[in-house]
């Protein structure tokens, strides 16, 4: 039983790297696995998309370009439907969110023991722990939701001005007479947005990963029985979560722009 627990804990431990002279500080630690995986996936996304964008042809597009256009149309149609008005950043932001999260979630499709197997057989990399799914790290999801949170505030300030935004914080939804109550409600609402965004994604991916680890603990001849359906189901989940994060970001930003 202890080996089972060890196995699970081993698979849920990040590859921690401590900054120079900060080895006793809890904050100044880097999850090297999360950071490297997300960076690599982000660059894969940028590489593919910028190459396609550079060679984009109006006529006779190849299959890759058509696929990229499909994704672009999906994102830009959502942006056009939800966000009314002109914004230079919201389209690229949504596209980046969708593709990056999707790619990070996709890492859940890799076998849970792949990293350990590679380290066991590799001659030059010898990390003890390596988690493959960056979006199952709360740091990644919070990084994105905090960025979105900052953008929400920037969008509010841009469309209402500083005083207008402050006024809105105190006067809606119950009028200026209930100012403190309004403020509490508004702050909760504001803080709930990034929290719900990041925790939803993190929770889904973490749970998915955990289920895969548990399936990996089963005897090999019954693993397919649970692993197969769960992988198929998870294809849906990872796409849905990426899509949801994107759509909610657009919704929050459009709410921030419009006055209540």
């Amino acid at each position: 039983m202890s080996s089972t627990t060890e196995y699970i804990i081993h698979h849920l431990t990040f590859d921690n790297v401590y900054f120079n002279g900060m080895s006793n500080s809890k904050f100044w630690t880097l999850h090297l696995d999360t950071f490297c995986m997300s960076l690599a996936l982000g660059f894969i996304f940028l590489l593919i998309f910028s190459l396609v964008a550079k060679r984009a042809r109006v006529e006779n597009p190849n299959k890759l370009q058509l696929f990229i256009e499909l994704i672009l149309e999906l994102v830009s149609s959502q942006v056009k439907d939800i966000y009314h008005g002109e914004s230079k950043i919201i389209g690229p932001l949504s596209l980046t969110i969708f593709c990056w999260i999707f790619l990070m979630n996709l890492m859940d499709m890799l076998p849970v023991d792949l990293a350990n197997w590679i380290f066991l057989h590799s001659t030059f990399i010898h990390e003890k722990h390596w988690r493959l799914v960056p979006s199952a790290d709360v740091n990644t999801t919070f990084a994105m939701s905090i960025s979105v949170f900052i953008l929400i505030i920037i969008f509010s300030l841009k469309s209402k001005g500083f005083l207008g935004w402050i006024k809105e914080l105190f006067s809606t939804p119950f009028g200026i007479k209930m100012a403190p109550f309004n403020l509490i409600l508004q702050v909760i609402e504001l803080l709930a947005k990034p929290l719900s965004l990041s925790l939803r994604l993190f929770g889904n991916m973490y749970a998915g990963e955990l289920v895969f680890i548990l399936i990996a603990l089963l005897p090999w001849h019954v693993q397919w029985l649970l692993g197969g359906p769960w992988v198929i189901f998870h294809i849906l989940i990872i796409t849905l979560q990426a899509y949801l994060f994107m759509v909610l970001t657009i919704v929050y930003l459009s709410l921030a722009k419009e006055s209540h």
Binding site: F19, K26, F27, W28, T29, L30, H31, T34, F35, S38, D137, V138, N139, T140, F142, A143, M144, I146
Partner: peptide, 8 residues
């Protein structure tokens, strides 16, 4: 939550 957040 640690410095990974800033990196991300």
């Amino acid at each position: 939550i640690n410095a990974t957040l800033l990196g991300e």
